[in-house]
Amino acid sequence: MESAMTESHLYTVKLNNWLQAWSQGQLRNGRLKIQDSNGRQQWSLYFHLGHLIGDAGGVHPRRRWLRQLAQYCPQIQVDPIHLYQEQKYRSDDYEFLAALMSKREILRQQMVSVVQGSVAEVLFDILQQEQWLRDRSLPPLSYTFTPEENLYAAPLVFLSPDRSWQQAKQAWQKWCQAGLEEFSPNVAPLIWQREELQQQSSPVVYRSLVSMVDGKRTLRDLALRLRQDPILLTQSLLPYIRRGWMKSIEVGDIGEKLEHIIKRGSQSSTAQPKTTSPLIAYIDDSPRDSQLLGRILTQAGYRYISLQDSVLALPMLLEHKPSLIFLDLVMPIANGYEICAQIRRTSVLKDTPAIILTSNDGIIDRVRAKVVRSTEFISKPIEAPKILNVVRKYLEFGD
């Protein structure tokens, strides 16, 4: 059966079958390499005698390893820069922990917890990346299995592949049920509008946010530091992100230069928006659609602001004066028609292109859009060619 493992598309059901095969002893020693179509995202899972014994790769391997050490071996101090060699099995790290075990400085259960925690994060990230690609009809992940009889001389940790996978799926389901599927726990929150945040927050809350939210710690890092559940922490920051007072940004691994940051889901090098590029606003209460449109526009070089609170939309538009506005129709309190009508009654914004972007694509919806003088009416799903064509139609700016 091992010889039949060749490069192929990876789906959760298929990966689940392979992990069950390892759990049942049908496969033995080797490395399963998982990557996206352009090789920017890569993970490795290592197996020994049907057990899962370790992992490598991902966006932040050093951060991930340090989090596990801090949580399960807090008495151990290590140099993060030399923890991990890219694309190699972390035998040095395991030898390090094994040496500590032999000296009775840590218990075997501590080492098991470190490896288990790291594997859980890797499997979660694979699930999220797979979902992200599937939602956007992008090429799926692929895998390559390489049998290796002498992978590791004496593994000290043996995890059940099937059980690890089931636990990761449960964690991912909880993340989605909390409405966070478009938020990676590997992004770092950053205060974007300090004055507005200070005016709208109590002094105690403001000082706490300033001390924590510095754009250097990921959501996972912050959750560990604050001893909070990552879901509850992310949900507590969502109101600030939705109002534009904070942003979630991608950060590099420890010791990694910014220009080497792996862009999650990117299919080509991402163009950074210039300060002189047109600003485009999108009013929609859906975090998923807001982040998707944001990626499309920022990768094309445009500046982007997401407004997820329809009540605060008009004041934010007056403050930022975008060059083009996208609006969803169905939102609580104020819908897209009402906001578009307000825009047309405002002298500063009355000539700004306002594009209705919605799942409601009936004749009545289109007529109402014309009544409130929307510039165009586009039906979802949000797709890059469709969005960029209409943007270029009204804005003179090259990618």
Rank of each mutant, 00 (worst) to 15 (best):
Q308R: 04
D351A: 03
Q308F: 09
L314N: 12
L318C: 11
I339R: 00
T346A: 15
S310M: 06
K350Q: 14
I325N: 02
F326L: 15
K350N: 12
P322F: 04
P353T: 08
L329P: 11
G336V: 02
G336A: 12
P332R: 06
S310A: 12
L314K: 07
P353S: 07
E338Q: 14
D328F: 01
K350M: 15
I343T: 05
I339P: 06
K321D: 10
E319R: 13
I339L: 12
P332I: 11
L314P: 11
I333G: 10
P322G: 07
A341M: 03
C340L: 02
L307V: 03
Q308N: 08
Y337H: 12
M316G: 02
A341Y: 01
I339K: 01
Y337W: 15
V311M: 13
A313L: 05
L324E: 04
E338T: 09
S306Q: 07
F326V: 08
V330K: 09
D351Q: 14
L324V: 03
Q308D: 02
A334S: 05
L312C: 09
L318V: 14
V348P: 05
F326Q: 05
R344Y: 12
Q342F: 01
I339S: 08
I339A: 03
L327N: 08
A334M: 13
A334I: 06
E319F: 15
L312R: 02
S323K: 14
L329R: 07
S347K: 15
C340S: 03
E319P: 00
A313T: 02
V348E: 13
A334H: 06
K350V: 10
Q308G: 04
S306N: 05
M331K: 02
S347L: 14
M316V: 00
D328C: 11
T346L: 15
M316S: 08
Y337S: 07
D309L: 14
L349Q: 03
S323T: 08
L318S: 12
P315N: 06
A334K: 08
L349K: 08
R345Y: 01
C340E: 00
L349I: 11
P332F: 13
T352D: 04
A341V: 06
L317Q: 12
A313M: 01
T352C: 11
L324A: 02
S306T: 07
L314D: 01
S306C: 10
A341S: 06
M331R: 00
Q342T: 03
D328R: 02
L324Y: 04
